[in-house]
């Protein structure tokens, strides 16, 4: 008679965070978005937060689909408007952690105005921007972060618009936490996300992430594995680097690390302070009551 031994099957740590009934996801082989979600789930685990009180808000695009896969209260909004939606959610429920999870085109082009104003107000949102350097969902067109000379669907002879340097822009607008990693830096990204989730104020992480299907292929940069090798070779960790010096180029150095970590009073704090000062006891400071 054969002896059977019960070998415990190693469970997947992040599975409880995913809507498993929605798998397989829509992301391509080699895409980095899933890697960021894995880091995000681990970061949430690290914080030991009550997951009922964490909400994810996404815009439109490949990264915009994150909201549909995480087993949290989640909102897939309109193109570019994840941040204003999240602003309303956060102001009505300041006790909830509101994470905005979206892409470079969504947050910096169509949603650029909302991004800078939320940073200026210091709304206590955690923004994760997956930067794949192009509009991927629509077929790989030039975006606000496309490096010069990169080939895209709408720049067949190479892009010639200067790209945004995301950390510099959000720092200038007022963000109180700013970091950049790539999907090669999974441990660092997890740590950074963990830190951001406990930081008060408008927080921003850029995650450079490959799009093998549309960006890598057109620019002869290989597949997802080649992207990891590229990130490994080109990345340099420089915590505290001046954000004015870390703009991305097509083939140049990728400076990663935490660049900004400062305390500024957030919007709700400023509002309450001002109203209390002027209205005294008349100010009713119990937030936005739920309606019924």
């Amino acid at each position: 008679m054969a002896t059977t031994i019960d070998v415990p099957v190693p469970g997947n740590l992040v599975e409880p965070f995913l809507r498993s009934e929605r798998i397989p996801h829509i992301w391509c082989p080699g895409c980095g978005i899933g890697t960021t979600v894995n880091c995000f789930a681990r970061a949430l685990l690290n914080t030991k937060k009550d997951l009922r009180k964490v909400a994810v808000v996404s815009g439109i695009g490949c990264t915009g689909r994150v909201a549909g896969y995480v087993k949290l209260d989640s909102f897939h909004t309109t193109h570019g408007r994840a941040i204003p939606f999240a602003t309303g959610l956060k102001l009505s429920r300041p006790d909830i952690d509101v994470v905005v999870y979206s892409g470079d085109g969504d947050l910096f082009a169509i949603g650029g105005n909302h991004l800078i104003h939320a940073a200026r107000r210091n709304i206590n949102l955690k923004v994760i921007c997956v930067n794949n350097l192009i509009y991927a969902m629509t077929g790989g067109q030039t975006g606000p972060a496309t490096p010069e000379d990169a080939i895209t669907a709408t720049a067949p002879f190479g892009a010639y618009e200067p790209a945004f340097n995301m950390p510099q822009l959000v720092e200038a607008a007022g963000a109180s936490y700013v970091a950049r990693w790539t999907t090669y830096h999974v441990k660092q990204l997890e740590r950074s996300m963990t830190e951001m989730l406990s930081h008060d104020g408008f927080s921003f992480i850029e995650v450079l992430s490959p799009c093998p299907t549309l960006y890598q292929r057109r620019n002869k940069m290989g597949d997802g594995l080649d992207a990891m090798k590229f990130y490994k070779e080109k990345s340099k960790v420089r915590h505290g680097a001046p954000t004015s010096e870390i703009g991305l180029t097509r083939d140049g150095e990728i400076v990663v690390g935490k660049f900004v970590d400062r305390q500024r009073p957030d919007y709700v704090e400023l509002m309450r302070r001002q109203l209390r000062e002027h209205l005294g006891e008349r100010f009713i400071n119990d937030g936005v009551p739920t309606c019924c």
């Binding site: 204003p84 959610l89 102001l91 009505s92 909830i96 909302h114 104003h117 936005v288 739920t290």
Partner: peptide, 23 residues
């Protein structure tokens, strides 16, 4: 709470975030 937003695109969805928050 009242918030003055940066444009009407924002104003018209900020309120929807607040509705889902319970307001």
């Amino acid at each position: 709470t009242f918030i003055q937003m940066e444009d009407e695109l924002a104003a018209s969805i900020t309120l929807q975030g607040a509705v889902w928050g319970g307001a």
